[in-house]
Simulated assay, not measured.
Amino acid sequence: MPAAAIPGTTLFDGVQARKGYALNKMCFSFNSAENRAAFRADEEAYMRRYGVTGPQADAIRDRDVLGLLAAGGNVYYLAKFAGILGLDVQDLGAAQTGMTKAEFKAMLVRANEQQEA
Rank of each mutant, 00 (worst) to 15 (best):
Q56G: 03
A4K: 14
G98Y: 05
M99Q: 13
R110N: 08
C27H: 08
V75S: 08
Q56R: 00
E44S: 15
Y76H: 13
L68H: 11
K80R: 14
D58L: 10
M99N: 15
A82Q: 05
R63I: 03
M107T: 05
E43Q: 14
M47S: 07
L92R: 00
I84G: 07
G83F: 08
L108V: 11
T9Q: 03
F81H: 09
R40C: 08
M47F: 08
A102M: 13
R48H: 12
A71G: 06
N35L: 10
A82C: 09
R61E: 04
F30P: 09
F28W: 00
A94H: 07
D42Q: 10
M47N: 07
Q90I: 14
M1R: 14
A38P: 00
E116A: 15
R36V: 04
F12W: 12
G98V: 07
L78H: 03
I6N: 10
K105C: 01
Y21P: 00
T97P: 05
A79K: 02
Q96N: 09
P7D: 13
A117V: 13
T10A: 05
L87C: 06
K25V: 08
S32I: 01
P55M: 06
A102Y: 07
L85Q: 03
Q16V: 01
V75F: 03
N112C: 10
A4Y: 12
R110V: 04
Q56P: 06
A117D: 14
P7S: 09
F28K: 06
N74H: 06
M1L: 14
D13M: 10
E116D: 04
G73Q: 01
A57R: 05
A17W: 05
T100G: 08
K101I: 10
